[in-house]
């Protein structure tokens, strides 16, 4: 009796070891294998993106993200397909922007911005990147600020030539006000009124109101 128990325990050790080994080895190999029956649809989307001149990196990244978050494979492919559509729309409006900017624009559309609003950003300025503006705008939508309000604020700053630091400063201030209990829309309106279009002063020139102090 005792020896049969011992054999049972030892057999369970071996069996669990084999189970562990098989589970761990299954982690290797094709990263998209978990899409299973939806793999064909996923490959089709990638092929379509490549044919349309769109980057496939964001699509593969989204699929990996879904797999890592243990999302159902059907849902993952639905999300990837939607992202493909948003990338195509953003590409059609903005033209040849880099992959990150295009991905940020697609995320903005996903968050609720209208394609027509993106058209404002079509004219490219040398050395200017709209990535930060898109990210801040997306975050405002995430914080339940109405799309029209957010668009008005972002577009005003953009037209005024605001740089990345100005957009970041706006975001920090609005986030702080919201965490203090202020209505998100009100917080944005208050902050946009006091945010200059160009945050960075010219080199060597002290900020307004500090000339007297610096001369003491």
């Amino acid at each position: 009796m005792t020896f049969s128990i011992q054999r049972g325990i030892r057999a369970s050790v071996v069996a669990t070891s084999l189970l562990l080994a098989s589970v761990l080895s299954a982690q290797e190999g094709d990263p998209f294998a978990k899409l299973e029956n939806n793999r064909y649809a996923f490959d089709l989307i990638l092929d379509s993106a490549a044919a349309a001149g769109l980057p496939t990196g964001p699509l593969m990244s989204k699929a990996r993200e879904g797999i890592a978050k243990k999302v159902d494979s059907k849902r993952i492919v639905e999300v990837v397909r939607k992202l493909f559509g948003e990338l195509r729309t953003a590409h059609a409006i903005l033209g040849g922007v880099d992959e990150q900017e295009l991905t940020a624009a697609a995320a903005l559309l996903d968050a609720g911005a209208k394609p027509s609003q993106l058209e404002l950003f079509r004219p490219r300025q040398t050395g200017r990147n709209d990535l930060t503006a898109f990210i801040v705008w997306t975050d405002f939508l995430q914080r339940n600020i109405a799309n029209e309000e957010a668009f008005t604020a972002i577009s005003k700053l953009w037209r005024d030539g605001a740089d990345d630091a100005t957009f970041q400063s706006l975001w920090t201030n609005v986030k702080g006000d919201i965490s203090q209990g202020l209505n998100p829309g009100t917080a944005l309106q208050n902050r946009i009124r006091e945010t200059p279009g160009r945050a960075s002063p010219a080199p060597g020139k002290p900020p307004e109101g500090q000339e007297n102090q610096s001369s003491r």
Partner: peptide, 16 residues
């Protein structure tokens, strides 16, 4: 940090 929806019911942060 700024966030956005991840389309899977959660959200992701954005770092630059």
């Amino acid at each position: 940090m700024p966030t956005m929806r991840d389309s899977f019911g959660g959200e992701v942060g954005l770092i630059g």
